[in-house]
Each structure stands twice: as structure tokens, then as C-alpha cells.
């Protein structure tokens, strides 16, 4: 068990969470809780894999996966923004529906043959850096590299650009944004769409790059929910979201790999000799999500920073309050 290999794989598996988390972060910054991430990821993973399989072009697969999930997210947008229904229930509905549609349309995909995957490569020069180069820049999928550029871009977009300002205004005080001429409904539709695109990308990252294939609901195994938890831990900040995603990815990888070697840290590996202890290892990512949430919530209370003020509240023009 080589620590560098684990971290290398951890960065790759953290990329999935990174896209999903930042997608959710965009939607929540505009004031919409989108709990359907798991369903959108499944839909993205299934359609990306199925398109890549039938056309032989993985890039087309990624594109279709993203668009499918984004169009699907508009159901949630319509129900919560136009019909002003409860965002929690609508998000749950989307989770069921996304999983159901993916299972129906993905029937038989798991037995399908090999698919051409997205390319992996090492970055010249950067991969020569000791340790860090090996972890971050050696034989990673192209989507992992896109992930590195993506976080600073997202942070810059939200904090420094005019559309980013509108996004934050709509999430914090939609009535004020509306009076300044920002179309609150349109902005919210747009960022739910962006959230869908990124959830679809996260799904496609799984099925076409990180752990290729379609394994019905086990493809995502609750990672969509982990992403929603990470948004809270990240306190709606893309940098913290990226940090949380990579740590989490590494943890997932470590748990998978720790059962392999006979000798661990110079002594007999208890997980090798008691394979059933693996069930307790399986609990760790989920328990860790809860711990991360507790940390995030405590910090939010202490620093008095927190969720966008209008998060979860439908905006009705002319109504009192937020």
C-alpha cells in the first residue's frame, strides 16, 4: 500500500465530488436547495456511459450526460421557482425519479462491452515535482486536470464578476436584486441548470473516467448526498468545497485499499485477517460526512456566517419579507 498511489487515486475520486459539490454550491448560492444531486448524477453517469458505448466517443458521452442532467434539473427549477413548492420534497422527488429513469434506461448497460474512456496523461514538467507532481499530475484523467482549473474559476466568478454579484444578491436578498433590475426567476433557473450540468459532469466523471462502467445505483453510492453535506461544510465557498472534496476522495480510496496488504504499518493488517471488519470501514465515509457537517455547522454558528439568507425560500414578487 503506497501512500502516494492512494492519494493519487484519491484526487481522482475527489474530482467527482468536486464537480457535484460546486454545482450544488451554485444552485444554493442562488437560493435553491437542490437535493436531487444523486438522481442527476445517476442520470448523467448512465447517459454518458450509454452514449459513449453506442457512438464510441467519450467526449460526446460527457456532453450528453451533462445536458441530460441539466434538462432534468429544470423539473426541480420549474416546481420550486415557478410553482413555489417545497424545495426539500421536490429535490427528493428528483432523486427518486432520476434513479428510476436511470435504472430503466440503463437496463442491460452493466453487461455491455468495453467502452472507450476519456484520455489520461501526465503533465510534462509538473509531474517531475517530487511527491506533489506524482499525486496531482501523473497519469490523471483529463477531467481531473479540468477540475484543478475549475475551482479558481468558480471562486473568481462568484466573488469578482458582475454575474457572480447578481448570483449572490439573488441568494441573499432577492427583493433587493429584483428592484435593481435583476431577473430573480431567470437567475435561479440558470443556476439550477448549472448545478445540473455539473452534477451530470460528476456522474460522467465516474462512469467514463474514475471507476468506468454502469453499476446501477451503486455507481454513485450516495456521493450526491455527500456533496450536499460538503456544501454546508464548505460554507458555500468554492475553495473549501474543493478542499473537502479532495480530502473525502482520499478517504474513500484509503478505505478501499487498506484491506489489501498483509502487513500494515509494520504489523499484521487486522483488516486483511478479519475481512468482515470491512463493514466498519464502509461506514467511515458516511460517519465522516456527519462529522464534517457538525464542524461546518458549529463554525457557521460561531462566525455568524452561513447559508445564503434566502436559501430554501421561494421568491414571490411583491410579497413581504425576503
Amino acid at each position: 500500500m503506497d501512500l502516494i498511489i492512494i492519494l493519487q487515486a484519491g484526487v481522482a475520486s475527489g474530482t467527482v465530488l468536486l464537480y457535484a459539490t460546486i454545482g450544488e454550491l451554485f444552485a444554493e448560492r442562488s437560493g435553491i436547495i437542490s437535493l436531487g444531486v444523486e438522481g442527476m448524477m445517476l442520470l448523467g453517469a448512465m447517459s454518458a456511459y450509454s452514449v459513449a458505448l453506442s457512438t464510441g466517443n467519450p467526449w460526446l458521452g460527457v456532453l450528453v450526460g451533462m445536458i441530460a442532467a441539466a434538462l432534468f434539473s429544470q423539473i426541480h427549477a420549474f416546481i420550486t421557482i415557478t410553482l413555489q413548492a417545497d424545495q426539500v420534497v421536490s429535490g427528493l422527488a428528483l432523486t427518486f425519479l432520476g434513479a428510476g429513469i436511470s435504472l430503466v434506461l440503463g437496463e442491460g448497460l452493466s453487461k455491455a462491452g468495453a467502452v472507450s474512456l476519456l484520455p489520461s496523461f501526465s503533465v510534462p514538467l509538473l509531474s517531475q515535482i517530487p511527491i506533489l507532481g506524482e499525486i496531482f499530475f501523473t497519469r490523471q484523467s483529463v477531467l481531473v486536470y479540468i477540475g484543478y482549473i475549475f475551482t479558481p474559476l468558480a471562486a473568481y466568478y462568484i466573488n469578482k464578476t458582475r454575474p457572480g454579484l447578481h448570483l449572490r444578491a439573488v441568494g441573499e436578498y432577492p427583493a433587493a436584486a429584483d428592484s435593481m433590475g435583476v431577473n430573480v426567476y431567470l437567475v435561479r433557473y440558470f443556476y439550477v441548470f448549472v448545478g445540473g450540468l455539473l452534477a451530470g459532469l460528476a456522474g460522467a466523471t465516474i462512469s467514463l473516467a474514475i471507476s468506468p462502467g454502469w453499476f446501477s445505483e451503486l455507481t454513485t453510492a450516495g456521493q450526491g448526498w455527500v456533496a450536499i453535506g460538503l456544501v454546508i461544510f464548505a460554507q458555500w465557498n468554492p475553495w473549501r468545497a474543493a478542499f473537502g472534496s479532495y480530502i473525502f476522495g482520499a478517504l474513500r480510496r484509503l478505505i478501499l485499499d487498506i484491506q489489501g496488504p498483509v502487513v500494515l504499518l509494520g504489523m499484521a493488517n487486522p483488516f486483511y485477517y478479519n475481512p468482515y471488519w470491512g463493514f466498519f470501514l464502509q461506514m467511515i465515509p458516511y460517519l465522516f460526512t456527519i462529522i464534517v457537517l457538525v464542524i461546518g455547522s458549529r463554525e457557521a454558528m460561531r462566525k455568524r456566517v452561513g447559508a445564503p439568507a434566502a436559501l430554501g425560500k421561494p421568491y414571490v414578487r411583491g410579497e413581504r419579507g425576503l
Binding site: I79, D86, T95, F96, L97, A99, E107
Partner: peptide, 17 residues
């Protein structure tokens, strides 16, 4: 086999709408 799950999802979506 995913049909029951899908129908449940559609029911919840229609209901909330």
C-alpha cells in the same frame, strides 16, 4: 426492474407540482 422506482418518482413529482 427500475419501473416501480421510476413510477414512484413521477408520482412524487406530479404531487408536489
Amino acid at each position: 426492474s427500475g419501473i416501480p422506482k421510476m413510477i414512484q418518482g413521477i408520482i412524487l413529482v406530479c404531487l408536489i407540482a
